[in-house]
Write a protein that binds this DNA or RNA. Structure first.
Lengths: 326, 326
DNA sequence: TTGTAAGCGTTATCAT
DNA sequence: ATGATAACGCTTACAA
C-alpha cells in the first residue's frame, strides 16, 4: 500500500480511502483514478488479515457441522455459503464428525480466528450440546437445537411436511393412507405424524393406528414395514414413507407383489434425495427439506443478531417435489 | 497479550515464547507455568490474524470446488480437512458452482486472505481451466487436470478400477462379462476400458465388442444398456457398470426379466455411492474412488511443494467394496 | 533467562 | 481534498 501511495504521490490514508470506496471523504476523481491505475499496474491486493486487525472486522463466519462427510443436507452449506458470499463474508467450514470434543476444539480455533458468528449445523434434526465458548460469539443452530433451546435456530417444518405429503396422497383419491414413520421420539417423527393426522382429519378420514408403522430409516426398514402393511386385511392403497431410502425398500416390497406404482399403490417419500428419488422407477414424489434456505436463513439471522436483533426460532417448510409415484 | 505480560510481570516477548512453546529459548519452568496460569485466568486466546500478520504465515489453505452442492465426492473435502487439521492448517472452502468466473473471484478473495496454497477439486474426473492467478500460489488439482497438465494433480486410477471390477466378475466364474461404460472420451471411460480389457486378457478371454456398451451415467442409461445386452444372442452373464446409478437401472432390467442377482447375472458398480450401493437389493459390489485419500494427498502435496518439492502427478487407486451382487 | 524495539499491512483520528 | 500519526495484536532480531 505504501508502494501505491509513493507511486501516485499520495498518502497511505488517501489510498486506503480510495480502495475502500469511502464516500464520506472527498477525494478528487483524478486521484481516485490514479490510485486504481496504480493498483492494477502494481498488482496490488489488500491483505485481508491486516485489514481485519486494523478494522476489527474479520468478515469471518464459522460453520461447524457433521455434514461434509455425508451426502446429506449439503444444501445447508451451499445456502450458507452463497448468502455469506453476497454479504462479503467468508465461511470457515469445519467438519466435526459429530464428535463433541472435536466441535469444541473447532470452535476454539475459530474463535482464535476472530469469527464474528458461528453456525452449528447437523444432518439430522436432533439435539446437540454446545461447547461452553459458544456463548462468546453470536450463535445460530441449523437443523438442531440445544437442551435449553437457548440459542436461535433454523428448523424444518416437520408438521407441514407430514401434512403436504399426506394431502397429496388423499388428493390422488386415496382413503387408506399408511405412514411409515422414523424411529419414535425424534422431532421429525413426532412432527410428521401430527401433519399426517391433520391432513386426514381435514379430509374427514379417521386415523387408523394399524396404518401407522415405524422403522429404521433404511431400505430394509421400508421394505419390512411395507410388506407388513400389505398383509393387512384392509391394506393401504397409499404409503407415505419417512425417508426416500425407506421408499426405496417400499418399492421393492410393492413390486414383489406385482403391484404397480402409482396405479395400484401411491407412494410419497421424504427428503428429496435426488440420487434416489429421481432414479427410482417410477421417479419418486417426495417432500423436500429446505436445506438451502435453512443455510441462507442462518446467515441472515447472524447478520440480524449483529445489528442488535434478538434470536428467534425460524421454522422453514419445504415443498412437495412432484415426480410420478403418487 | 500485554495484559498477560503485565499480570505475570514479564515481557510480551517472554509470553509469546511460552505460548508458542518455543524450545529454542530458555525460559524457566516457573515463568512458563505462571504464563499459562495467567492465560487460563484471563481467558486469553491468541489472535490468529495478528499472528499471521507478524509471522507471515497464515496457515490458511484454499479449496475451490464444485462438490459442496452435490452428494458426490464429499470425501475429498473430508480427507483434505482432516489432513489440514493435523498440520494445524485451516481449510478455506469455497464452492464455485463449476462456474469459472466464480472460481476466479473465489481465488482472488482467497489470495486476499493470503492463503499458502490452493486446491481445485471437481466431482467428476475432468479438464478445467484455471484462473490466471493460480500461478501466484502453490496449486494442486484433485480429480481434474489443466490443459497443459502444468499443475501437480491427484487423480483416481481408472485403469486399476476397471481392472479390479472386471477381475472380480471373472473370479466369480463369468466368461461373458459386459462393460457398460460412461460417455466416450472421458478419462474415466478410456481408463476403465483399458483395465477391463487387461483383466480379460489376463484370463485368456477375448474381448467381444458387442459386450461393450456406453450410456449416460443414469439409471435410465443403465437400464437401456442392460436391456439391450440381455437381448443379445450370447447374452453376458455379468455386467460391470460405469456408475452405481447405472447399476441401479441394470438391476431393474435384470429383475424385469426374472433373473436373479448374483445367481443368474453378476453385477459390479463403480463409485461406491453408499446411498445406492448399500440399499440396493442385493447390496451392490462396487469399485470405490479413493476420495478421502485424494483430499489428504492434496494437502500432503501442498506441504511438500512448500518445502521445495517439485509437483508430480499422483494416481491413487480405490478398493473393490464387496457386497452381494457378484 | 528475559527485555527492548522495530516491524507486519492496514484503518482511524485528527489536523491541515 | 489530503496527510501525520497512532493504533491493531502479535513476532522476532538483537541486547542485556
Amino acid at each position: 500500500m505504501d508502494d501505491i501511495a509513493r507511486h501516485v504521490g499520495l498518502s497511505r490514508t488517501t489510498v486506503s480511502f480510495v480502495i475502500n470506496g469511502r464516500t464520506d471523504v472527498q477525494i478528487s476523481d483524478k486521484s481516485r483514478q490514479r490510485v486504481w491505475d496504480a493498483v492494477k499496474e502494481l498488482g496490488y491486493r489488500p491483505n485481508a488479515g491486516a485489514q481485519s486487525l486494523a478494522s476489527k472486522r474479520t468478515n469471518l463466519i464459522g460453520l461447524i457441522t457433521d455434514i461434509t462427510a455425508s451426502p446429506f443436507g449439503g444444501g445447508i452449506i451451499h445456502g450458507a455459503q452463497k448468502a455469506a458470499w453476497e454479504l462479503g463474508k467468508l465461511l470457515l467450514i469445519v467438519s466435526s464428525e459429530g464428535d463433541s470434543a472435536m466441535e469444541s476444539a473447532a470452535l476454539e480455533m475459530l474463535l482464535g480466528r476472530r469469527i464474528e458468528g458461528v453456525i452449528f449445523a447437523t444432518q439430522s434434526h436432533r439435539l446437540i450440546t454446545l461447547p461452553d465458548s459458544a456463548s462468546e460469539v453470536p450463535t445460530v443452530l441449523v437443523h438442531c437445537f440445544d437442551q435449553a433451546r437457548a440459542f436461535p435456530s433454523v428448523l424444518p417444518d416437520e408438521i407441514s411436511g407430514g401434512y403436504i405429503g399426506t394431502r397429496r396422497l388423499i388428493e390422488a383419491g386415496h382413503r387408506r393412507v399408511a405412514l411409515i414413520n422414523l424411529d419414535p421420539g425424534l422431532p421429525a417423527t413426532v412432527g410428521r405424524q401430527i401433519g399426517y393426522e391433520r391432513a386426514l382429519a381435514e379430509a374427514g378420514i379417521p386415523v387408523d393406528p394399524r396404518l401407522i408403522a415405524t422403522g429404521h430409516a433404511t431400505a430394509t426398514g421400508g421394505f419390512q414395514c411395507t410388506a407388513a402393511l400389505l398383509e393387512l386385511e384392509q391394506a393401504p392403497t397409499a404409503i407415505f414413507c419417512g425417508t426416500d431410502r425407506m421408499a426405496m425398500g417400499a418399492y421393492d416390497a410393492i413390486k414383489e407383489r406385482g403391484l404397480r406404482i402409482p396405479q395400484d399403490i401411491g407412494v410419497v417419500g421424504y427428503d428429496n434425495q435426488e440420487i434416489i428419488a429421481s432414479f427410482l422407477r417410477p421417479p419418486l414424489t417426495t417432500v423436500a427439506l429446505p436445506f438451502d434456505q435453512m443455510g441462507a436463513a442462518a446467515i441472515g439471522m447472524l447478520a440480524a443478531l449483529a445489528s442488535g436483533a434478538t434470536g428467534e426460532q425460524l421454522i422453514l417448510s419445504g415443498p412437495l417435489i412432484e415426480r410420478a409415484s403418487a
